[in-house]
Design a protein around this nucleic acid. Structure first.
Length: 156
DNA sequence: GCCAACGTTGGC
DNA sequence: GCCAACGTTGGC
């Protein structure tokens, strides 16, 4: 009995790391997540093969830029131990790492970005539990239901 | 670049 | 354990 495939949305600033970057490198360790709820989704929720909506944030047209998949179980984010890294966390130890990451694999770039504006226009259909459009939400890793996944893919 | 919303920190 | 101050996110 295997668990049903789950779906996620992961935000990235395209100036830092875009869907094109992921296409080039194919697989990327999703480092730098420093939010406990997002970490817990990676640690407790994600399984290899889960679907990922790759979202471009903090850009001219924010929205879903492509598809990816989860390519590893969660493991300690090495940047937390590196004093030279922007993501260094002096309170974390190798014995008890505070921050985890998963590897994310490229699947497909959308022909066009499904914009946040378009997504907001379908908010009624996506439902109140869709974290992306909930007021004030800033989570960079958030769950997507099967129904939401289907609807968002049909919007491409 | 602005700033609302939110999470974290740390003094008490 | 409260909560003000602070830092960050991310749309606009």
């Amino acid at each position: 009995m295997t668990a049903r495939r789950r779906y996620w949305l992961m935000k990235s600033e395209p100036d830092t790391f875009s869907i094109d970057d992921l296409q080039r490198v194919r697989t990327e360790p999703w480092n730098g997540v420093r939010n406990y709820q997002a970490r817990n989704y990676m640690r407790d929720g994600m399984k290899v093969g889960d679907g990922v909506l790759f979202y471009h944030s903090n850009t001219a047209v924010p929205g879903i830029a492509g598809l990816a998949s989860i390519a590893s179980a969660a493991y300690p984010d090495p940047t937390q131990f590196d004093p030279k890294s922007d993501y260094y966390d002096p309170k974390s130890t190798r014995e008890d790492p505070r921050w985890l990451l998963v590897d994310v694999a490229f699947e497909r770039k959308f022909d066009r970005v499904v914009s946040l504006d378009e997504i907001k226009a379908r908010a009624d259909e996506l439902g109140e539990d869709f974290a992306l459009t909930r007021r004030g939400n800033r989570l960079s890793v958030l769950p997507v239901s099967a129904a939401q996944w289907k609807l968002l893919l049909a919007m491409e």
